[in-house]
Design a protein around this nucleic acid. Structure first.
Lengths: 333, 333
DNA sequence: ATGAAAGCGCTAACAG
DNA sequence: CTGTTAGCGCTTTCAT
């Protein structure tokens, strides 16, 4: 195996200097058409591929952005990722991705690792970073976006929506529909889920008429199966009184719905169900499930755009961007 | 903003030479405990992060592996990715990930881009690469794994299972259950889906008794909603005769199942449904859906292990690894 | 166990 | 428009 061709090899074949080849690759318009064609042929002929490490070192531009999500298996972050990848393609950037498994400590390590790639921007999920992580991020001097939720003290830029308000609204929706014995089914209990729960409690506390609430949570990760188990649990705790459940996401809601069939409960007559995130399945099951929709793909895209526009500028702290949410009312409530 | 600290800065603070700091970071055991502690403190104090580009350039080891999947939105590849990420963590590697949207041409471009990172290994999905892509890959000299399906002429290493055989088996399962008017619902129609369809046709052709088949396919991407539409289509084409459908994946199968409720068809009495991939929902809907399971997470892990063990060795072409599949029989058939 | 010198492959800055 | 020179920050190699 011959070693990989480098710029000089291409230059030799094309009969030009190395820097000209470099220009053809980065700024083709700065090279005469004649030389450019010669170089392009040479590149293709010997299958030259530019050495990113050398290029990044010399130019101080890595062409990379770093992204950390809490979970690869949660389809919610998938939507965000797709938005990120679609935007990144326009800008000819690469993504280096980390999955921190909802752990701030893992996230801290990942941040250090990913920063070593000299990313030109950093996208984080949520606002729950360790102090040392914040220090590293800050001192890196690159633009940073925190995604998904709104923060009072963002590291840099912030785009998301209020999970607390969404929790309030969806709970009020149930109360307005006449349900009075409300259950909350929560899994994982990350910060966003906690905010949804806080919204649930707030709505109940503020409600002018007597009503009952039952909160069942677990730190296990969400799954459809778990939704069924939590429904069992809330029915046990409420001695069968619970007449509506707010599930902290649609996986749980689907599981709860499937479980009602086994328990011979009618939805929404015996019990109402609502979820969160508005997954495709929620609209298509029978009965369809009320949920909370948010523009995840667009959030991902916009995060990249924010990074790119912020790249040169001074750090004028922009205010958080609230992308909002929408309650999608369906047959289950 | 002061510029980022480099090795020399750390060295100065710790009162040692740059190379010693480098050793502490890469081969701590080669440095005396006294100096090591000093250096570690200095690193933490000034928040030093090693410049990956420089490190990669000097050492000729990028610590990166490249991965291309056909779709970020398909949960199937998510499982594989999780396997990859979990294995990669053990080896202290970074992943650069590309989504080629099922397009060999996009894949070719991605391969060129990702190769510029000098990855130490490359994981590809499927066997449908362009000639130029294969050339680039081959000449890069790095170990390569093709995932998901088995290939007659792999570029290098290969791990997957036979989608053709799985298609044959699941079709025979339906035939054995007494169904004789079989429909195939296919979306996307990538190479693996086509192999499943080929298996379906083979099983029908080989069956000793009279039976009927209806094939409905589209190049649209899969979704639950589409499953409902395709079920409508196959019922129209078969004039209501179709008594079993093999859906090329579980999304379609779920959509088909939900549609049967709207059409007032009983499953499996009026019509049997089976899917592919064995998603969690398939086990939990009512009735539960027969599907084909495969060890996706493990495939991802094993792909990384293969790359790592192959790293040093000569290219002794290993035979493809068949991870097999399993038909999970459930209530829907 | 530690250090000095050289150079990885590329591009910025300057020169022509 | 094209080329020359220097150096990005690190690790390799060789010396002590």
């Amino acid at each position: 195996m011959n070693k990989k061709p480098n710029l000089k090899d291409v230059a030799k074949v094309a009969g030009v200097s190395a820097i000209t080849v470099s220009r053809v690759l980065s700024n083709p318009e700065k090279v005469s058409e004649k030389l450019r064609t010669k170089v392009e042929q040479a590149v293709h002929e010997i299958g030259y591929i530019r050495n990113h490490a050398a290029s990044a070192l010399a130019s101080r531009r890595s062409g990379v952005i770093a992204v950390i999500i809490p979970s690869l298996s949660n389809i919610v972050f998938n939507d965000v990722l797709q938005g990120i990848y679609s935007a990144v393609k326009q800008h000819h950037l690469q993504v280096v991705l980390g999955d921190c498994h909802y752990s701030p400590l893992e996230e801290e390590k990942l941040i250090a690792t990913l920063l070593s790639q000299s990313p030109e921007g950093f996208i984080l999920t949520g606002t729950d970073q360790t102090d040392y992580a914040r220090k590293l991020l800050q001192q890196s001097g690159i633009p940073i976006v925190q995604l998904m939720e709104l923060s009072d003290c963002p590291i840099d830029m912030n785009i998301g929506f209020s999970h607390f308000n969404a929790g309030v609204d969806i709970t009020n929706h149930l109360l307005q529909k006449g349900y009075r014995k409300l259950g909350f089914l929560g899994a994982r209990m990350d910060t966003r889920t906690q905010q949804r729960l806080a919204g649930f409690k707030k709505a109940i506390a503020d409600f002018k008429q007597p009503c009952q609430s039952y909160v069942v949570t677990t730190t296990q990760s969400s799954s459809i199966r778990l939704g069924g188990q939590l429904l069992q649990a809330v029915m046990a705790e409420s001695q069968g009184q619970c007449d509506a459940v707010f599930c902290c996401n649609d996986d749980l809601a689907l599981g709860a719905l499937f479980e009602t069939k086994r328990m011979n409960l009618k939805v929404p007559a015996d019990i109402a169900i609502c979820g969160f995130n508005d997954l495709e399945a929620s609209a298509l099951v029978e009965p369809s499930i009320t949920s909370v929709a948010s523009p995840r793909f667009e959030m991902g895209q916009q995060a990249v755009e924010l990074l790119m526009t912020a790249a040169g500028e001074d750090k004028t702290h922009k205010p958080p961007i609230d992308v909002g949410y929408r309650i999608v009312e369906r047959a289950s409530t």
